[in-house]
C-alpha cells in the first residue's frame, strides 16, 4: 500500500466488496443451506456488535426449525474441530471479517 489514503480507500473498497456471505464449507442440502445462510446474515446484521447475541439467535432459530442441539460459533479468529451430524454443517464468512460456523450435533 502506497499511502494511508489509498489504504483507506482500499479498506472501504474491501468492506464494500466483501460484505456478501461467502460459504466456505457446507454439506447441507440446497434449501437448508440457503435458509441457514440467510438466518446467519440476518443475525449478524442485527447484532453487528454483539456476536454472542447473534450466535444465540442463530442457535435458537435453528433449534426451532431443524430440531434441537445446534451449535453456533461466531468470531473473527478461531480454530475448531467439531463432530457434526452429516448434512448439518455450515461454515461461512460474512462481512469481510466474521466467520460463522453452524453445526448440529445432539
Amino acid at each position: 500500500m502506497a499511502g494511508t489514503g489509498e489504504g483507506k480507500k482500499e479498506e472501504a473498497d474491501y468492506k464494500r466488496l466483501h460484505s456478501f456471505p461467502l460459504i466456505r464449507h457446507t454439506d447441507m442440502p440446497e434449501e437448508m443451506r440457503v435458509e441457514t445462510m440467510e438466518l446467519c446474515v440476518t443475525a449478524c446484521e442485527k447484532y453487528a456488535t454483539n456476536n454472542e447475541s447473534a450466535a444465540k439467535m442463530i442457535k435458537e432459530s435453528m433449534d426451532k426449525k431443524f430440531g434441537s442441539s445446534w451449535h453456533v460459533v461466531i468470531g473473527e479468529g478461531f480454530g475448531f474441530e467439531v463432530t457434526h451430524e452429516v448434512k448439518n454443517l455450515l461454515y461461512m464468512f460474512f462481512g469481510g471479517s466474521l466467520a460463522v460456523c453452524v453445526w448440529k450435533c445432539s
Binding site: F78, G79, V82, H84, E85, L89, F93, W103, C105
Partner: peptide
Amino acid sequence: PPRSIFSAMANQWEIYDAY
C-alpha cells in the same frame, strides 16, 4: 445419525484470502 468431523481455522487473513 451419521457424523463426521470438520475442522477449520478462521482468522482475518484467511477470510480475506477467501473473499
